[in-house]
Amino acid sequence: MIEYETIERAARQIMANAAIDIPPDYRQGIEDMSKWEKGELSCFVLQTMMDNWKAASADRRPMCADTGLPRYYVKIGNNAQLADGFIGLERALRSATAKATHDIPLRPNRVHPLWRTDHNNNVGINAPEIDWSFEPDADWIDITSVHKGGLFGTDYRMLFPGDGIDGIKRFFLDTLVSFGKRGLACQPAIVGIGLGGSKDITMVLGKQAACLRVVGDRNPDAKIAELELELKRMGNSIGMGAMGFVGNAMVADCHIEVGYTHTGGMPMSVHTFCLSSRRATVRIHADGSCEYRHDPQWFTPYMRRETVEWPTAEHSEKQSV
């Protein structure tokens, strides 16, 4: 049985982990880029950012003062038991957000869109967002905290099947060039691309691809994996680096997620997870013990299932008999 207090405590901890410690996969990605970046100003930016991460971890202060839009991704094992149910889980996450905002401290970013009302705690109507997913044969819950900037670097477009890979490449370049100028996208970024689904899911998939997969991870579909690498190379050949200065370090990695879509369409979204890519995950086991990590492990084989059934160990055994 997983208790309310355990969830709230763990959520406060991942809020702090995300805000302060740069994930090691992204740090390595930027370190590698700083070695081959030839643009002198762009390289200065990368090296200063690495100094900033060290200062953040040493001082236990946020690496970026723009909290972005702090939110959660929750994966619930099908056999997990929550003492206060799903409502309790939601309340614990909202409470953890308010407490972490004061204690770390984080900038209270969340305001009413019209009246600009600020509760000074990053909690409000529909905030923080909570995305849900499920996992078969598990009794744990995974909670991931993501703080991603909220103003620039994201775009959506309805493409059509006839636009093909060319259309995808053009829109990818359009987004990076336009938001890369002056560094509005805070690049080099992990670029997430959503392809397909209904329009809202196109956006959700792209956002999750950017924020919930680590640098170096590849889509299990070999052809999509190839396209990820091709787009990464393309992004790094624009001639633009950090802050829109001359250089090449633009894309730390590129991740594509797909959803079955309307037969006449190919909607696409692009999202950039920035130089302060803030994500942290906790797994809360049935006995209340917590394991903290940087890889959200969000896109499981179950998440990407193709049809009514999904691959499991048991399922595979039956098929082989």
């Binding site: 200065f44 930016v45 200063t48 950012m49 100094d51 900033n52 991460w53 200062a55 953040a56 001082d59 202060r61 946020p62 690496m63 970026c64 003062a65 723009d66 560094g183 805070c186 950090a242 802050m243 920035c274 130089l275 302060s276």
Partner: peptide, 12 residues
């Protein structure tokens, strides 16, 4: 500013 997320260096 540099980066633009040098929040910790500026905070210092």
């Amino acid at each position: 500013t540099v980066g633009y997320g040098t929040g910790a260096l500026l905070g210092r």
